[in-house]
Design a protein around this nucleic acid. Structure first.
Length: 839
RNA sequence: GGGGCCGUAGCUCAGUGGCAGAGCAGCAGCCUUAUAAGCUGCCGGUCGAGGGUUCGAUUCCCUCCGGCCCUACCA
């Protein structure tokens, strides 16, 4: 409608965990993977149809017959191709990362499959001997260095992770005490030292020195039971809520630990296998389950004297939601897109700078996330997802040297048969059976892609592939949660393949909350389902509610709010109905009155309409729909209903059907109708389309452009003069109301009013001549010159009321041939008709 | 706990370093030619709270309270 072709292709992300979970629930877990994927595909397809119907019902315009589904074979193949491009550009690497791991499932768990429940664990205090006491003494500013042994003490609830210990973390800002005890010197956070000492059962202790955490960085410690040393590192997440203010770091067994480890280049040690048992070659605990390992570690520490305390503790701990058993954090081999490997982060930051944001704060949010985010782990150990189609060396894990060619080979097959082509592929088919580069040495990667990758590459798989679409997209529109999701995944893939964002602008909206601003939840019972609103009040009301709500924050909805929306809808709809009714006998081609022969008030109404249209269009162009709705509504009720249309009724109903006065009014109404119908179409689409069908020949209002209102050179003058006239009119209505309250007049047509004015007000009122009474909707009105503030006097009229025009005039019944009519009506009906210039 | 945002009348929203606005709702009337309509008037606010900057703060700054999204939910 703004003169652009703006195609919208609806689409669905079809892969992913939520679908797997539903299918698992319905069919159980013990079905062959291939069959499982078939069921997922079926389920996804059924959901697409349901959601599609809802969107169509809402009046969303899109290419519903040709949506994109990320599970289309071609799409799946293109996802793989995008992965290939990113690999070719050097952003992809194989690394290790701790994931939630269920020993009973023998697989990684997604966040959604993790439940937190209370668990009893051993809580132990472990002493890590300081390797170089003279270094410590130097840091503390103490004389000499022989004061050994000294220990850094850590507290942990997972003793079995100690074999993977690679560091001890302290908080840079905390103060640590060096305390002399019968066991030797202990390093403990000052605020926790007393409690710790008590726990260890020491009576007399002496604080030898104090040191800031930051000054401990790099101090070397001896592992408490292995023959290697670990450093003290700094980490902000260290707290004083429990323990001793020093944290044991096992990068392979904890998220925080992993992040801290990345910073310090620590090894991501993972001595634990898929089955939850230590690898056989792990010293001391080899081949034991981690739970047995707990005991062995404890025993070892007791024996070598490094165990300071042992307690039982109950705490919240992650459990597998299926097995209800405690899960572990375990480092596994994963695929990553590196943020800094090939400058991706820098490109992404630039892309954020180049993007337009609605509202503007989206930029800060995305920027902050991009700046801090770790590398993107794109692999998942799942069934229903696009496979990572690489061949890796069985021993080294190196990618096959022909990876790019092979990937395209695979993509071609996926294009024909879907992802199943990969899963059922025998590596020998592509690699051959023998030789250095054959299936003898290389195996298929088993992972699937993070679904965020699927959605992240839609710009490539859809926009670049389908005819008539533009890349980059004009706009990506999503809820504010997608700063973390789609906005980001799309940005990263776009930057990794094209070097820029796949969108030019981002629009984000808040979430729907109840009337009190509270999140909706089934348990609270405050959920208002959009389907229900649509079914009871209609899709149009739902559309208007969305449009009239400021989406930059939360969108509140309640019964009262919807009631107000219905009111607003009625107002707009009734206004349009009036316009339709009063232009029913009007044909523009036949009856149009030239602009310069319209009455003054008509020309004002058109100037006002034009102004309103410009404002609404300006709103639309920055996606400010709620202000547009307010303007439209205000225009209908204030400018039209309470003013122009109210005044116009007399002319429309009483002047000659084909008189210039009436046709002039209709000309203006026709323009207003045209303007409003199109202007409201993006929001009140059904209503606009309905009106369009009544007034125009063409198929759809959406195939039209904004109505072009006639330009008026003196528009500003008109707007200025009539703005003041409306204020003066307000004085009259207010004064008349006093007489009405006193019972002296009912209808304003029973009143005779006099404006007492001077200066410009006098001139303005006088300029309307006899038409002044039509503006005030009184049967008589005049201006008298008087100094001071402009004011109004009212006198009730006692003449007869004309039964046709309802004006109370002295000349009612003047024509004996037409009893009950005033002179004006007789003239309008049988004579030349009255002439009006202003109103 | 961290990051981002929001808080103006009963409801939806404007607004500005200088008297706080509209529509709807409510109340009181009018009209019966938009009639499950229309018109008029009235009522309605500590601009979330408390500090600070300023001659002056609803507006700029800080703190707090309440709410929303993301993230971390720990050793």
């Amino acid at each position: 409608m703004d003169g652009f072709d703006a195609p919208y292709v609806p689409g669905w992300d079809c892969h992913g965990l939520p679908i797997e979970l539903v299918v698992e629930k319905a069919h159980g877990k013990d079905i062959p993977a291939a069959r499982f994927r078939e069921l997922c595909r079926e389920y996804a397809a059924s959901q697409v149809e349901r959601q599609k119907a809802d969107f169509i019902r809402l009046g969303v315009l899109g290419d519903w017959d040709n949506p994109y589904l990320t599970m289309d074979y071609r799409f799946e193949a293109d996802i793989i191709r995008e992965l290939g491009k990113i690999q070719a550009n050097g952003h992809l690497y194989l690394g290790a990362k701790p994931v939630h791991w269920c020993v009973d499932c023998g697989s990684a768990l997604a966040e959604a499959e993790v439940e937190y429940e209370d668990k009893t664990s051993p809580a132990i205090d472990v002493a890590f001997p300081v390797a170089d006491c003279s270094d410590l003494a130097q840091r503390l500013g103490l004389e000499a260095g022989g004061d050994c042994p000294a220990y850094a003490v850590i507290w942990t609830t997972t003793p079995w992770t100690l074999p993977a210990n690679r560091a001890v973390a302290v908080h840079p800002d905390f103060v640590y005490d060096l305390v002399r005890t019968p066991k030797g010197l202990l390093i403990l956070a000052r605020d926790l030292a007393e409690a710790a000492i008590k726990r260890y059962g020491f009576e007399t202790v002496e604080t030898v020195a104090q040191i800031k955490g930051a000054d401990l960085e790099g101090l070397t410690l001896q592992h408490p039971f292995y023959d290697f040393q670990v450093p003290i590192i700094l980490a902000d997440f260290v707290s004083l809520e429990a323990g001793v203010g020093l944290v044991h770091i096992a990068p392979g067994h904890g998220h925080d630990d992993y992040i801290a480890g990345l910073k310090y280049g620590l090894e991501v040690a993972n001595p634990v296998g898929d089955d939850g048992k230590f690898y056989a070659d792990t010293p001391i605990v080899g081949s034991q389950s981690i739970w047995a390992g707990n005991k062995t570690v404890l025993q070892t520490l007791t024996d070598n004297g490094h165990l300071l305390a042992e307690e039982k503790i109950q705490h919240s701990y992650p459990h597998c939601w299926r097995h209800k058993t405690p899960i572990i954090f375990r480092a596994t081999r994963q695929w990553f897109i590196g943020m800094d490997k090939e400058g991706l982060r820098a490109k992404a930051m630039q892309a954020v700078a180049d993007t337009e944001f609605f509202p503007a704060w989206g930029r800060a949010r995305l920027e902050a996330m991009m700046k801090n985010r770790p590398d993107w782990c794109v692999s998942r150990q799942r069934n229903w997802g696009v496979p990572i189609t690489f061949f890796m060396h069985k021993q080294t894990g190196e990618l096959h040297p022909r990876s790019q060619e092979l990937l395209e080979e695979v993509a071609k097959r996926v294009e024909q048969q879907g992802i199943e082509a990969w899963f059922s592929l025998d590596a020998k088919e592509l690699l051959g059976e023998s030789g250095e580069l054959s299936a003898e040495h290389y195996e298929k990667a088993k992972d699937t892609l993070d679904v965020w990758f699927d959605s992240g590459v839609t710009h490539a798989c859809l926009l670049k592939e389908r005819e008539g679409l533009k890349h980059p997209a004009d706009l990506y529109l999503e809820g504010s949660d997608q700063h973390r999701g789609w906005f980001q995944s799309s940005l990263l893939t776009g930057c990794a393949t094209d070097g820029h964002a796949p969108y030019e602008a981002l629009l984000t909206h808040g979430f729907v909350v109840d009337g009190k601003g509270m999140k909706m939840s089934k348990s609270k019972g405050n959920v208002i389902a959009p389907q229900k609103v649509s079914d009871t009040l209609g899709a149009e009301i739902l559309r208007l509610w969305v449009a009239s709500t400021d989406y930059s924050g939360e969108l509140t909805i309640s019964d009262e709010i919807l009631k107000r929306v219905v009111e607003a809808y009625r107002r707009i709809r009734n206004t349009l109905r009036f316009l339709l009714a009063n232009t029913a006998d009007f044909q523009m081609a036949e009856h149009e009155v030239a602009m310069d022969r319209l009455l003054d008030i008509d020309r004002y109404a058109l100037a006002l309409t034009r102004q309103m249209q410009e404002e609404v269009l300006a709103d639309y162009r920055v996606y400010s729909f709620h202000t547009a709705v307010q303007r439209l509504h205000h225009f209908c009720s204030e400018d039209l209903g309470a003013f122009y249309l109210d005044i116009l009724k007399d002319r429309l109903y009483t002047s000659g059907a084909n008189s210039r006065a009436r046709r002039a009014a209709q000309t203006a109404l026709w323009h207003i109708l045209q303007t409003l119908t199109r202007l409201m179409a993006p929001i009140l689409s059904f209503t606009a389309e309905e009106i369009w069908a009544l007034t125009c020949k063409s198929d759809s209002v959406f195939l039209s452009v904004w109505h072009e209102l006639p330009r008026q050179a003196d528009a500003d003058g008109l707007l200025g003069r009539w703005a003041r006239l409306r204020e003066l009119r307000g004085l009259a209505t207010k004064r008349i109301e006093e007489f009405r309250a006193a019972g002296q007049v009912g209808s304003s047509l029973q009143a005779d009013i006099v404006f007492l004015a001077d200066g410009t007000d006098f001139d303005l009122l006088a300029s309307l001549g006899d038409d002044l009474r039509f503006v005030t909707i009184t049967s008589a009105a005049r201006v008298e010159r008087a100094p001071g503030d402009t004011r109004v006097e009212v006198a009730p009229l006692s003449h007869e009321k004309c039964e046709r025009c309802w004006h109370v005039r002295p000349d009612v019944n003047v024509d004996p041939a037409h009893p009950g009519l005033c002179g004006r009506c007789v003239s309008n009906l049988f004579g030349e008709g009255e002439s009006r210039a202003y109103a």
